[in-house]
Design a binder for these strands. Sequence first.
DNA 1: CTGTTAGCGCCTTCAA
DNA 2: TTGAAGGCGCTAACAG
Lengths: 349, 349
Amino acid sequence: MDPVAYDSDLQRVGKHTIRDVARRANVSITTVSRTLNTPDLVEPETAKRVWAAIKDLRYYPNTQARSLVSGRSRILGLIVSDITNPFFPELVASFEDSALNHGFDVLVTSSNYDPQRMANSVRRMIERNVEGIAVMTSEMDDHLTGQLSSRNVPLVFLDVGSASDTISNIVVDYAGGIQQAVEHLVSLGHERIAFVSGPAGLKSAEERSSAFLDAMARRDLPRGETPVVLRGDHKVSGGVSAAEELLQLTPRPTAVAASNDLTAIGLLRAVRAAGLSVPGDLSVVGFDDIWLAEYTDPPLTTVRLSRTAIAEAACSALMADLGARPGNGNGREHRLSTQLVVRATTARV
Amino acid sequence: MDPVAYDSDLQRVGKHTIRDVARRANVSITTVSRTLNTPDLVEPETAKRVWAAIKDLRYYPNTQARSLVSGRSRILGLIVSDITNPFFPELVASFEDSALNHGFDVLVTSSNYDPQRMANSVRRMIERNVEGIAVMTSEMDDHLTGQLSSRNVPLVFLDVGSASDTISNIVVDYAGGIQQAVEHLVSLGHERIAFVSGPAGLKSAEERSSAFLDAMARRDLPRGETPVVLRGDHKVSGGVSAAEELLQLTPRPTAVAASNDLTAIGLLRAVRAAGLSVPGDLSVVGFDDIWLAEYTDPPLTTVRLSRTAIAEAACSALMADLGARPGNGNGREHRLSTQLVVRATTARV
DNA sequence: CTGTTAGCGCCTTCAA
DNA sequence: TTGAAGGCGCTAACAG
């Protein structure tokens, strides 16, 4: 045993165990444990002595030991694609807040769009015995999902996957959001509306694309025209290239909706670079309402998808599925709607 | 013992222990442990059997138990002010990468500029037995620091604190960075240069402020003039208000340096709102080079402070101080320099 | 109300 | 090269 641990100079002393506290308070370790976990079961006077010892020794319970015996790690996993993507920091922050409120710590990892890295994250989370994982990215493959659910680790996905026993799913109403955007433009008199999509293969992006086509189909288009959809990549650069294509079109669209805000920002930039003005020559609508949208020039009209709401929904889904046994019909879908935020990149034709 | 754990349908089976593996491979648990930790000490043939069992059972070692016995959690703590502040996500990502390379997981928390919350973070980290903490915020008070270092938890700070046994410090050369900014402006012919500072009490911000005054003092100012310093808050809004003040000044400065990029962005916005142009009427330099700087309009000239470098320095400092015992003269200062990044918000007078 | 005892899953002497 | 046994710090029966 490390002699330092029993140094009499308490200021300098490092880690103490429940046993040290017990000794100092003249009680058994059980009593110490109980004053910590089930205070009602212990005589107030005794408890007081215990607390004094705890304070004197600067005792902190060892979570590892606690977890080992209780089988509960009180850790939640959170996997995002890339934390430097402005969509995620707020999500991470809110998720941590929610988890904290439930007494959980959070292990955050970025998949960086790399399945290998993703698998590695999952392995580490299993080894750490996380009690649930929020998968806010689409790199998750079925193999991993199966692995996790066979271990009864509750999972919650964003947009992908389908709810089952211990798998919940957060379903964003992209169709509704895109429709809000399109209707807003239509209400301003726009008819030739283009769309800049996200990367191919990203389910949520493809949903937005087809939602756009649907929304447009419900409008009376100018005779013989079909709506233009350009491919973006959900990054600024994709918006820039899309704008360059867009401005070549004749007749040129009078408005464009983007699959996310970064794309819209690229659009703004390229349009201005071409010597045109937003919304004078072209109206632009984004999607997500990232923090930055408020500070573009002009401030971006967009469709808000609340990261706070996503995070909270994810956390409660996990909490709900926590003690779930297979077959109990846990796992649920949580639907999230969007709100149009009108700022200054849209105007009458 | 949970019967499910011994279900013969391995696909559905959840958690297994080292004991299950041992049984299945017909060896003792010691041998299993050894094939995992010290493979050289085990007969290749035996090891093969063990690995097969591990795979069959989808066995994952339990980190809690491992930590408990080894006394090493393989977790690093990272405390940032506010992860939604664009300065931090990159830092977090890089820190996680570095930690991962050293076999550590990371517990990230945001202090949200709240000392109470900070203390709570620290407590959780102690309870989880983190092996080191990177404190990338200034909410840390001496009491917490003392607590941690008396437990021999290596600490690394950004800008604050002074190196000691198990405390390292990352020292950014703000003076050099600000000087780069000022010299750049001077080289473009600017003489009336203003500065928008950060929040009062933030050491790194105050350093930048005084560095600005120093740099200006070294220049020949127009007769009888002293450089203007306005107070900002390191947020966009602070830049906006500062710009409003700034534009009232007579004679009006021809250039302004900001204490960080968000401030500069606020400046850009307000100047444009006032009908003036950047850099035509006013040159602007930022500080940090956040991701966004490249996408402002016009793209922001700024001083780059690499978050990757900070994160890597922080992680290696922690690694270096890991096994440190008091008095061994560990803990070091790591100096970081900055680079001027010239974009389009600065021009000749 | 309090204490004794038996593990949680794993690593690590010590023996064989 | 392998195994048996003890213990990491803590909680949870079970007795008193």
